[in-house]
Amino acid sequence: MPKVALFVTCVADQVFPDTAAATVRVLEAAGAEVVFPAAQTCCGQPAITAGEPAAAARLAHHHLDVFGALDAGEIDAIVAPSGSCTAMVCHHYPALLAERRTEAEALAARTFELTQYLVDVLGVVDIGARLDTTVTVHDACHGLRNLGLGHETRRLVEGAGATLVEMTEPDTCCGFGGVFSFGFPEVSTRLADSKLGHAAGTSARYLVSGDLACLMHLDGRRRKVGPGTVPQPIHIADLLASGLPPKR
């Protein structure tokens, strides 16, 4: 049984704990045993996007201390329910932690985004979830372009029996961008409207993505202008977990 350390991400830990719990359920349904390293905090991504790499590096050192210490013989993989936080570790850590580059690269090599781990590492597309619904996918930017993800979420959705309806430009940014959403709220909001409009054009029930930040942005906009409208933004872990049989 593969053993996975959950890299929960601060956003899931503090704001969306249900999504974190769903991630654990999905991983377990796929046959993995999940442990939670309690000393983890945040990967440092907010600081690097704010233009403060020194502050980000401090968090990155801590993250590397916590997850790098896990015995490779004991833990098979480190998995996060976020393409963006995974990209921080895999794409940015080796340069950010130049003096610990070898360690950082080793950590990057065993850190995976949830759908990447399920489909590309475990080779699982059917975790036993059954979904009788329609879904459209938003390709979150960092998963798509830093990690090369795309087909994984779609295969899992279809593996659960849901109908996939592609929107126009599924690979265009939702407009969040961390500090960008505060610094340029008008453009950021227009991009969210554009994404929500494309998603609505599919008449799907759910708008699924692998990044809570995008979903927080899109759902935040939806709740402001059209609460209750579809598609409802939802994380892939929440969607899949909702189709799993009740826990014994």
Binding site: D18, A38, F182, P185, D219, G220, K224
Partner: peptide, 27 residues
């Protein structure tokens, strides 16, 4: 400092219980 966000988008609030606290209780 959140007005730039909240004037056009709702911002979710922190959960009543963090995942780590939930995990610690369950385990």
């Amino acid at each position: 400092g959140l007005q730039a966000w909240t004037s056009t988008r709702e911002l979710p609030r922190p959960a009543r219980e963090s995942f780590r606290d939930r995990w610690a209780k369950e385990h």
